[in-house]
Design a protein around this nucleic acid. Structure first.
Lengths: 221, 221
DNA sequence: CCTGCTAATGATCGTACGATCAATATAAAC
DNA sequence: GTTTATATTGATCGTACGATCATTAGCAGG
């Protein structure tokens, strides 16, 4: 950076992609109060160039939201959760490994938290998506594993949803500690996820049995 | 606020307390990027007055950290956790009810998260406090409840700590959903805490039994 | 090699914001 | 009521930051 970097002329598509990519990393690190000049400097371009591609800073931010949160959800995850050829424990472990790899990244976690603190609706919408596509299917599978009635015969209770949230919270909080608090965490993520599913699934099965008044027996999980 | 509010002259102690109090609420709401002018306006004072009490904005922020995080930890909580006159389940429920009431408030949760995202060391220090004063005592009590050896005979494993974190994470995440994502949560907090402790404690006991190779029997919890 | 299109830049504008300071007014002391 | 100490204010400074625009220069087409 000592000598003035030679001016490079990219196609609009390339440049836009580069800006969005850099913005995701930049805003994830410093928050949306980060300055456009500093972002530009990190990208090796001038600040006014940003405004050729995004009319305002807010437009760029919304593009970052889109890029990070839209399309990271993979429909095959839903199929995985419901695939009764595998034991539920295995399905949950496989799901959370995939989810951690694709969704719970440094950028995702931090931008998600910044968005929440900024009062964006994004998080509420994401939580609704999660309840519909993950937690309710998980509760349904827990019902099955516990030998309890299907949800269409006995509605899923708030407590069962909270039990499913506990599984999710345990995984999520691991990444909050890692990427937000920068605390030491168990280094073996795969082992952590397996153990976490074991612990939290036990509790969820117990909740469901209690709710559905299924006699307490060892179910085939 | 239509007519100019009459100038009121408070004792330095009163005014300082008022500013700190207002700053906690203000920064919890909008983050530390919030403007001193707006804070002053909410307090009904002029912006330069802030600078009579705090040399810089950063000094005020650090005072807010102090006020919120120092001294909210109550030593009697540690006594409660270790009081074997009560069943462990009851102790944990009582602790988390008290902790939620005194620590996991709107201001606390949001300032804690803002501080984490800003890269403050505060959170790491708090996590260390929590491990030493809460999680390790909890693990010790779980050992006792599970009929497993005391920590001085068999060191507490990383997995046991993570299991204790799961109890904590489940309670904590409830408040993150409530105060950061502003999502709907189970309205009956007392019931939520009781159920959460039930679910997560089961898993933690199982982890400890597995680790300590205690034959799987129904322990007196 | 020349030409034209437009990606990219440098200079700059307006405002917001942290911070400062001399001037003012309030409450306590007598 | 008068005086005095100081809490509080109004005016203002310097800079940072989002945004704008005329100018410059890289690359494709001929």
């Amino acid at each position: 950076m000592t000598a003035a970097a030679k001016r490079r002329r990219l196609s609009p598509e390339e440049r836009e992609a580069q800006i969005v990519d850099g913005a995701i990393r930049f805003f994830a690190e410093v928050g949306f109060a980060g300055q456009t000049r500093e972002l530009a400097q990190r990208l090796g371009i001038t600040q006014p160039l940003l405004y050729r591609y995004f009319p305002t800073k807010q437009d760029l931010i919304e593009r970052v939201y889109e890029e990070v949160f839209i399309g990271r959800w993979k429909p095959e995850w839903e199929a995985l959760i419901s695939d009764r050829a595998l034991p539920l424990r295995e399905r949950l472990i496989a799901f959370y490994r995939a989810y951690a790899a694709d969704a719970l990244t440094y950028e995702w976690i931090r931008i998600y938290m910044f968005a929440g603190l900024a009062g964006e609706n994004l998080n509420r919408r994401y939580i609704e998506l999660l309840e519909g596509r993950l937690l309710i299917p998980v509760c349904t599978e827990i019902r099955h594993a516990a030998g309890a009635p299907r949800p269409d015969r006995l509605p899923i209770s708030g407590l069962e949803i909270e039990a499913a949230w506990n599984i999710h919270a345990a995984v999520f909080y691991y990444f909050v500690r890692k990427f937000i608090y920068r605390a030491r965490v168990e280094p073996d993520l795969a082992a952590y996820i397996a153990d976490t599913v074991d612990r939290t699934l036990d509790g969820a099965l117990a909740v469901t049995r209690r709710w559905a008044e299924v006699p307490c027996r060892k179910a085939a999980v």
